[in-house]
């Protein structure tokens, strides 16, 4: 599991750097890995870190790898916190596993799906990915919040993550349920939706909880 261990060390270096200077001493103090010294050596010989001075520096390749790990970890945190309302401890545990397994394509889908969040639930910056760039030639058919759906486009509801059960029941009695086709008619002053022949006005916090896919 050295790759796993390397990831953890790189992640820690990135976090320490956000809080100030990532020194070797600070790293050894905070790490939970069993043999951090040998992991650091592995990373150095792999060309990811530069251990010449007391402050650990990331090389260009090391920077890129760490960036990816942090990005996957924090996106996973947002995903788990926003969608599943999990407790902080559970989020941390699962996010730590996500960061090692998500492929590039999946990460981009998750990021787009979450609306390219700039920060994690703890308020730390999420490194941007290619998918966050606004100017692109092709638009991928991904799941987005209804809030971000194009005006007048017909979209299909994939799922709803309501704050309360009552809200979910109310929406479902109006025909706003996973699977139904829906059109966003306007955003201001309130969000107005069309489901079948029913027109419904709702608040933004509700459209934020409805996830849709272009059809």
């Amino acid at each position: 599991m050295t790759e796993y261990g390397q990831d953890e060390i790189l992640e820690l270096i990135w976090s320490l750097r956000e809080g100030g200077r990532p020194t070797r001493e600070a790293l050894l103090r905070s790490t939970e890995e069993e043999s951090p010294e040998s992991l650091l050596d592995e990373l150095e010989s792999g060309g990811f870190v530069d251990l010449a001075s007391d402050e650990i520096r990331l090389t260009k390749t090391g920077e890129e790898r760490a960036r990816g790990i942090i990005r996957r970890h924090r996106l996973a945190e947002v995903l788990l916190a926003n969608l599943f309302d999990l407790e902080d401890s559970q989020i941390e545990n699962s996010a730590c596993k996500f960061e090692h397994v998500l492929s590039e394509a999946v990460t981009e889908s998750v990021c787009t799906f979450l609306g390219h969040p700039p920060v994690c639930p703890h308020g730390k910056a999420i490194p941007r990915g290619e998918c966050c760039d606004k100017i692109r030639t092709e638009i991928l058919p991904l799941v987005t919040r209804l809030t971000d759906a194009g005006l007048g486009d017909t979209v299909r509801i994939v799922f709803i993550t309501p704050k309360s059960r009552k809200r979910l029941e109310k929406l479902s009695s109006l025909g706003i349920v996973p699977g139904s086709r829906i059109r966003l008619l306007q955003r201001n002053p309130s969000y107005v939706l069309q489901v079948g022949e029913t027109t419904v006005a709702v608040d933004r916090d509700i459209t934020d909880e409805i996830f849709v896919k272009r059809t």
Binding site: K170, L174, S190, T198, T199, V200, A201, V202, D203, I206
Partner: peptide, 9 residues
């Protein structure tokens, strides 16, 4: 409560 309001034609 939530603002969920049906708009009649």
């Amino acid at each position: 409560s939530d603002f969920i309001m049906e708009i009649p034609p």
